[in-house]
Nucleic acid binder design. Structure first.
Lengths: 150, 150
DNA sequence: GGAGACGACGAATTAAATTCGGTTTATCGA
DNA sequence: TCGATAAACCGAATTTAATTCGTCGTCTCC
């Protein structure tokens, strides 16, 4: 992984559908050599994949919330049960086990507050082991940039 | 926006570099008609763009942290000043103003705990208006799926 | 029932991805 | 320092995909 690779990654993060020819021009390499590097980055796992980024508003997911979740510590496999159940919930975009005060931090997207009340009561608090939740409603997205700083 | 569009969005979220021909086969439409729909989704802003998803570990960003930030409420434009300063920090991938207990929730990626200590002391706590921070270190990624549930 | 608009289709054209043989460049040991 | 080896790069040829365009069918609204 050298500077040219990092430059490739920067461009591919900014525009995942840049043509190989345009990319090769940007990094001052032939199309063949550029393609070879990109394939290697894909096969080595540095590039996990490509995706379209959608506007949440236009697909009826205008409300973003973070939920702190604390579990009952009654059983050692309660974490396992909670994790497994959570993975299948479509509204949950991210979930992390964290150190420092509570157990899990959950990021979820729903249509509106009504949908969230429903989600919280009918789905989240009914997951195995959930003792307590605390909701943080996002009022403003100050920054939401999925690109990694290479 | 009909079912065909939603189907297109699902495939493009899963693989942003799927060829138009393959996509057209998946949705049972001609390549020309498929391309026309994708272009419309792009121009209308439903599709914001395309990106390569990278593996944070392999690019030396193995530590993920969330930081709760509380600001001094001394001046009305302190929020503005904080927001503006924060946007330019590369380690910060996301930042939200939230309701419920504190002011901002910041998501940041760094190499390791040493880098984080440095980031916290030298950068984050020196931003305008920062009164208090609380760090949550991510121990495990239970789910991290950037696809929206269409 | 008819006019207009929209969406879809298929063929033709343009452009890009991919392959391959040969050449240069970098690395490493003698 | 020199030579051997491997890795990376290049340009041309080929395969494949994107894009354009003329036409047809279908839906909507008079």
């Amino acid at each position: 992984m050298d500077d040219i690779d990092r430059r490739i990654l920067r461009f591919l993060q900014k525009d995942g559908r840049i043509t190989n020819i345009d990319l090769s021009r940007q990094i001052h390499l032939s199309p063949a050599a550029t393609l070879e590097r990109v394939k290697k980055l894909e096969q080595s796992g540095v590039i996990r994949g490509y995706m379209a980024r959608l506007d949440p508003e236009t697909v009826n997911l205008g409300l973003l919330v973070f939920i702190q979740v604390t579990l009952d510590r009654t059983s050692p496999d309660i974490f396992e049960a909670f994790s497994k159940a959570l993975k299948t919930i479509p509204q949950v975009s991210e979930c992390y086990m964290v150190a420092g005060g509570f157990d899990y931090l959950v990021k979820a997207r729903v249509k509106d507050m009504t949908a969230y009340r429903n989600f919280l009561g009918k789905t989240l608090t009914r997951l195995p082991g959930v003792r307590q939740t605390h909701t943080y409603t996002v009022m403003e997205e100050v920054k939401a940039d999925p690109e990694l700083p290479i």
